[in-house]
Design a protein around this nucleic acid. Sequence first.
DNA 1: GCCACACTACTACCGCAGTAGTATTACCAC
DNA 2: GTGGTAATACTACTGCGGTAGTAGTGTGGC
Lengths: 128, 128
Amino acid sequence: MNAPNLRLGDLQLRILEILWDRTEASVADVHAVLKPERELAYTTVATMLRKMEARELVGHREEGRTFLYRALVQADAVTRSAGEHFVGRLFEGSLADAVSHLLTTREVSRTELDQIEKLIREAKRRAK
Amino acid sequence: MNAPNLRLGDLQLRILEILWDRTEASVADVHAVLKPERELAYTTVATMLRKMEARELVGHREEGRTFLYRALVQADAVTRSAGEHFVGRLFEGSLADAVSHLLTTREVSRTELDQIEKLIREAKRRAK
DNA sequence: GCCACACTACTACCGCAGTAGTATTACCAC
DNA sequence: GTGGTAATACTACTGCGGTAGTAGTGTGGC
């Protein structure tokens, strides 16, 4: 399975998120969604999509004159790859270290702590 | 506080790790440590260090003709920044989502689960 | 005194994200 | 059918990580 290189820039990730949301989107669609958050030229979005297609991150079909793009990589694969890099590269693979660091350097709400606790219990149940 | 841009490449991170380990290091030192893992030209390391100095990631003092570099950014700041980016960018800031994802897409040992559980309990105690 | 060596400085190049302008083309309205 | 519009195609440029060669220079050994 040729996992296309999954090191993504911010814009690329943002575009993928948009495509994950709506399955298919034209350049105009993506541009419109991006509009409020960043002021990008229409052609910038088009160029980015074409570059991403070259890297097999997205694909397209034609509807009349319009290209409808869709994501070729799953959100899952991207987040997994990012997680691996994060834990592996910065904490030598120790998930506990990574979580520890996240817990101590961020504000974490009681609710989140409860949620995570539950996740751990579930993981244990699955493992055992 | 001007946090210098903390988006680091792999080599840069590796170099910082080396500097964190030994406080000060010459180009030759860094090159020697890197040697077994990646075959880099001496000048590559020197160039990288100079570039990193331009970005204020490292600084140097001169000992005779030799530059002794030291890290200007703390390991802490780098991992925090990376953590923020990871959680913020990929999980909309939800630490629980991030941890959940890490737990389900990786092999996690019993021991690690126990460790994390303990961390959660501690965090709760601190919070309350 | 001279040579080799160890350093740093400078320059260059690739790949890729990001950004955008210009050119081309097809279609729709009237 | 002609003009405007909306679409893609092509090209270009910046910045940066990564990589490395070459040039310049000071120092120590003999």
